[in-house]
Design a protein around this nucleic acid. Structure first.
Lengths: 344, 344
DNA sequence: CTGTTAGCGCTTTCAC
DNA sequence: GTGAAAGCGCTAACAG
């Protein structure tokens, strides 16, 4: 029907409707300063000739793309998938789109991704990763694009972030084990060079022991990569060396489930002979038997709140505080003997 | 130091380097028609004044954004998260970025998302969903932007897609149960109005029964939403009604794990008294005890191949066939009694 | 309430 | 090998 697909511009609409481009732009953007009759006329033409606004042109002219960049370690990890969902939901709510990039926690990749995102003129950046290095900081500081960290933080800098108190969470989890009466409590965590999760959770574990006068024993500590098999292997090693271990705090749920299976393969029962508590509360925690006791981290909310915070920055709104710490919960299920009600 | 952040343009570089914008553009884009000395001079200036190309402007001028839109049901579902990872990896490999949108399988949302993505001038579209309706088809046909379906297909249309043969997969899974000698085989699936997964898998189950002379009994069929609890509930109902059921094919792994737990809660053993086989082979299948037997669907590959196919379309390459069916595997573990080796 | 007119920052012929 | 100039499609003053 003479409709050149993908080539209909605002100019065509203007011509067909007998108005100026400015007027078409106004109706497209919902500007109220248009006479209803004119608006209808324009809308009709738009409908008829199948006009679709070009967001790239709009972005160039208005210097706003309504898209934000998200750098995330690995979307196939349930932990981050949940965070991503929170991010995307709020982004959608505020009419932003998300450019999603996996960094695999590799600094070089992270930096390169940020660079690309900035080239694409994103209105804001959400960064989820481990460490903020000098390199990160340099690039964040040099840009006027607002950046918010999610599930991470930067204590030396003044970057806004949304996170939980990992030290406190780990401490509380360990305390559950201590309250159960255990003295030999192992720890399976992630890399201690990771200052945003690995280290703080380890510190929390140590702090709990110390506060309860339980001597720290480095032989009871194992480091994995956060995934199932590394948790299994770690627990197996631990038990092979010393099967009198009666409790373990595992810093991620996936590893915790692996640890449970290692215990079972050692012909020991969870929680009767070994108590296991995890951290994060990803879906699998409530999809295994015994149900995993864990620290419930509000993953979705962290993503959602971080995105919400970013919209405020992008909108130049007044910000109370850019550093927000969300609450976590203890979710005591069947891999430990204490129950939530016992703590009441 | 006089560096206006975010405002350095190609023009500034040209002026500083004493060359034209065209030349700067050439070096930035790796055009070989530039004298090495000139190239170096320009590169130095770029480095010195901190020039970052504006991809939006480039997109407007070149009509290419090097970004593709991805409409996916729910990124927090492990199934789609895995697909997304495959998509993103290949996209990165070909220097594309991904705009990720969750549709929750709602048609209205899907259509709206596609519209938005098209406005943003994506170079291609990857669509993962359930059904392709007339509405979808209309909009896909009206655009010159290439579209590829992933983990889905459109038999009435000629849209390119990457998928597996769900009927065959379901049939094969059911056959495992039949070969084990079961006669009373239940089915827990997803909505039969979903013609891309729900229906075909159900058809495969029926076909297997029929080919083996086992009468179909609708009392043995339950429909869930694909997630853990619905699998649990479905199996519980089934067993409450008739606890002589000795095998069940569950169309998704998450539901299958739920089903296993329902069986166990019924004081029955898996696989001794009830065999359970799932489908998809998401991570949880190998993170529960008993290890779930399942149909291994190459999720990552479906995403990767679909993205690769899309790059070919975007690049106007010669395409052999736009409809690709990937192979699946049987992964027999501990929730069934037959083993892969038994089938050799 | 509506039109005119500059750009936004870059690519892309087309000359030289 | 390099430059000049014309857009790409839209927004944003600024008039009127």
């Amino acid at each position: 029907m003479g409709i050149k697909k993908g080539n209909v511009t605002i100019y065509d609409v203007a011509r067909e409707a007998g108005v100026s481009m400015a007027t078409v732009s106004r109706v497209v953007n919902g500007n109220p300063n248009v006479k209803p009759a004119t608006r209808k006329k324009v809308l009709d033409v738009i409908q008829r000739i199948g006009y679709r606004p070009n967001a790239v042109a709009r972005g160039l002219a208005s210097k706003k793309t309504t898209t934000v960049g998200v750098v995330i370690p690995d979307i196939s990890n349930p932990l981050y998938a949940e965070l991503a969902r929170g991010i995307e939901d709020i982004a959608t709510m505020y009419h932003y789109n998300i450019i999603l990039c996996n960094s695999d926690l590799k600094e070089a990749k992270e930096l390169q991704l940020i660079e690309t995102l900035l080239e694409k003129q994103v209105d804001g950046l959400l960064f989820l990763g481990s460490e903020i290095t000098e390199e990160h900081r340099k690039i964040f500081q040099a840009t006027s694009v607002p950046v918010v960290l999610a599930a991470s933080q930067d204590d030396q800098g003044e970057l806004p972030y949304v996170n939980i108190d990992h030290v406190a969470a780990a401490k509380e989890a360990t305390n559950v084990l201590i309250k159960e009466g255990h003295q030999k409590i192992a720890y399976i965590g992630t890399s201690l060079t990771n200052t945003v999760q690995g280290l703080p959770r380890f510190r929390g574990y140590q702090a709990a022991l110390e506060e309860n006068g339980i001597p720290f024993d480095e032989n009871l500590v194992r480091i994995g990569n956060g995934r199932y098999s590394s948790g299994y292997e770690a627990m197996k090693e631990l038990l092979d060396k010393d099967d009198s271990i009666s409790a373990v705090f595992v810093a991620t749920d996936e590893m915790a489930v692996g640890a449970i299976h290692a215990v079972q393969d050692h012909a020991l029962n969870v929680p009767d002979q070994v108590s296991v508590i995890g951290c994060n509360n990803i879906p699998i925690a409530s999809q295994v038997r015994p149900l995993l006791s864990t620290v419930s981290v509000p993953l979705y909310d962290i993503g959602a709140v971080a995105m919400r915070l970013l919209t405020k920055y992008m909108n130049n709104e007044e910000i109370q505080t850019g550093q927000v710490i969300l609450e976590y919960d203890l979710e005591l299920r069947d891999s430990t003997r204490l129950k939530n009600s016992d703590l009441a």
